[in-house]
Design a protein around this nucleic acid. Structure first.
Lengths: 101, 101
DNA sequence: TTGTGGTAGCGAAAGCTTTCGCTATAATCA
DNA sequence: TGATTATAGCGAAAGCTTTCGCTACCACAA
């Protein structure tokens, strides 16, 4: 709690009450879980960062790129600077995809 | 207006008043532009679909993928089904990027 | 036991967005 | 022109999210 509040307060200058309420609302929505045994209560994200990222990504693909992941990829590639290693990794993925299809 | 309203009403079952208000709020926020000469007024998106898509994409990259377009690309590739043509196109982009770096 | 500091919660205020009723104005038609 | 229909706008209600004041509780020190 303290740690969470410290960050929120730092970013937005809000009070401790706000942090508590925010978390209880998020708990109600199932966005976080908490361990009530411990004092202070321990809050944890209900979803891993990775899963949340994937969810946002697939929503963007669905809503904005008409469900075509590839057109998002092309767009992103067109405006990205990547290292040789990353480019190589992407090639490998493309190869694997071609094999499967 | 009519056309816009038809879609909104269809999707959400809202009234004409709601459509008008929605557009005027969006106008205030600069999301749409309008031609007041014509009757009925003609509303146009202030941003092309393409530009809006790029904006959302770069926001996602910034907020969720720590500014690394490539890590988003890898993620998206890993969960996408693409045609040979698309894969080929992606390879070309990768080649170009490698040349430039 | 009583006071003090950290923790939790409730209820409501403040601030958005969304929705609509009602009114006014413009256009169309008989 | 007068009546009828389409168009635009205003102001407020309804419904969220965000924020906080105040209260209650709990643990520990004096």
């Amino acid at each position: 709690m303290r740690a969470i509040h410290a960050q929120l307060a730092d970013a937005k200058g809000t009070t401790y009450s706000t942090t508590v309420k925010m978390l209880s609302v998020m708990l109600g929505k199932g966005l976080v879980k908490r361990d009530e045994q411990a004092t202070p209560h321990i809050y944890r994200a209900a979803m891993t960062r990775d899963r949340a990222a994937r969810k946002l990504l697939s929503e963007l693909i669905e809503k904005v790129y008409d469900g075509s992941a590839m057109s998002l990829v092309l767009q992103a590639l067109a405006s990205s600077k990547a290292s040789k290693e990353e480019i190589e990794e992407a090639r490998k993925l493309l190869d694997e995809m071609e094999d499967k299809s």
